[in-house]
Nucleic acid binder design. Structure first.
Lengths: 223, 223
DNA sequence: GACAAATTGGACCAGATGGTTACTTTTGTC
DNA sequence: GACAAAAGTAACCATCTGGTCCAATTTGTC
């Protein structure tokens, strides 16, 4: 969320004995949080290093000390954001549910994750504006994301075996559908509000939309 | 599309009698085309006025002459892009078709429009990054967009009357679904490619996805 | 031919921007 | 206590950036 003061170290503008504590992780974290907020708000080109430095509990010096340059900082923010989503699907334990319930759960979860993490959505938007150049660059992010597809693939196989899913379904296709329906409300919130006067962040709208998305996915998959 | 030379006027770097012709519309158009390409590629903050000027058949001087400043230029580009989509739905003559066919046609059309106009999609992304601040500002764009919703509303009423649509459907909801499923493939093309190795711009993928989207919408709407 | 609009050319500018340098001090650990 | 890593301070820099100004010429129209 918003940048919090590191638990130790860094009391800006103070020098002398006992003025600060070594806390590399804390400083990194602090910079990362502030930078994320800036990149989310203004995009990669729009974000200002000086501004980030100013909002930080530390200094511009430390940004370059830890992240080399603007691109390095942005990449670190991106990787940090992706780190948050990975493995989350696994915590769902879909295997315990009948395929149809599992699909509904997975869809609802995906919808919620996007709605609850607009920052992540906006970073992905920014990244797409830049043709996913940094995603391409990041070894870290690369492998971790096929896990989501594996979950989907397994679920499809099981649902077909149970006889509750159509057998001509492509896992990639249904994954795209779920992502699209979860992503769009958040990514295009501003233009939807402007054009239709409909704010997707309003609790009632969100709840209704959530149900509708699940319904859409289930109807598509059912035999 | 890409910036074309104006039909008359402007042969860069030439002076003297007969060197150029007055052509306000041509010059405006030329600037607009170049600017659009730049904003689409780099976003609002990332686009460089100097770069735009250089790619233009005319000069930076003329950009400010016609568009006042960067924001003015961007707004003009945005309005121009929206002007392209307006009224297009009306040319479909959905009324001539049974409601189900009309819905399939409208969905396919929306899908195609997005796929064929990635520039438009990217401008909308950029605009959303900026919280649709300029959309808000533009009187021009404001009114024109409710037309799409009217088309949808009429179709819904008719489909329900025909007894082929569910009666508990919200026109806004189905419109969002169609938009989301049309928008996402284009807006997130780069990250989809990166994460799944699946290029939505490949003809075969696009065709398959198109059919799937229509199927999704129809299944959702059918009684 | 007068006059406004269109167009050209290019120098110029102040402030912002990403990034660097140089140097010092403090901390933590062995 | 030695030493490297962590942190701080603050000035500095080259370049870029959006934007302006000046000064002139050409066109089209009435």
């Amino acid at each position: 969320m918003s940048a919090q003061r590191p638990t130790s170290a860094i009391r800006k503008g103070r020098t002398g004995v006992g003025a600060w504590t070594q806390n590399p992780e804390g400083v990194r974290r602090n910079i990362l949080d502030v930078a994320k907020a800036e990149f989310v708000e203004h995009g990669l080109s729009g974000a200002r290093i000086n501004e980030i430095a100013a909002r930080t509990a530390t200094s511009k010096r430390m940004i370059y000390y830890y992240f080399t340059d603007k691109e390095g900082l942005y990449l670190a923010v991106l990787e940090d954001a992706y780190a948050g989503i990975r493995g989350l699907e696994r915590s769902l334990d879909l295997a315990a549910l009948p395929a149809l319930d599992a699909l509904a759960t997975l869809t609802g979860f995906t919808f919620d994750y996007h709605a609850d993490h607009p920052d992540f959505v906006r970073l992905v938007m920014v990244e797409n504006i830049h043709h996913a150049r940094h995603l391409k660059l990041s070894a870290k992010i690369g492998m971790l994301n096929s896990s989501a597809m594996n979950v989907m693939r397994n679920l499809c196989v099981r649902g077909m075996a149970e006889g509750v899913f159509r057998t001509d379904i492509d896992p990639v296709d249904i994954h795209l559908t779920i992502s699209a329906l979860s992503f769009y409300n958040v990514s295009n919130r501003a233009s939807i509000l402007q054009v239709f006067g409909h704010d997707m962040a309003v609790e009632a709208h969100r709840t209704k939309r959530r149900a509708s998305v699940i319904e859409t996915v289930l109807r598509f998959m059912k035999v």
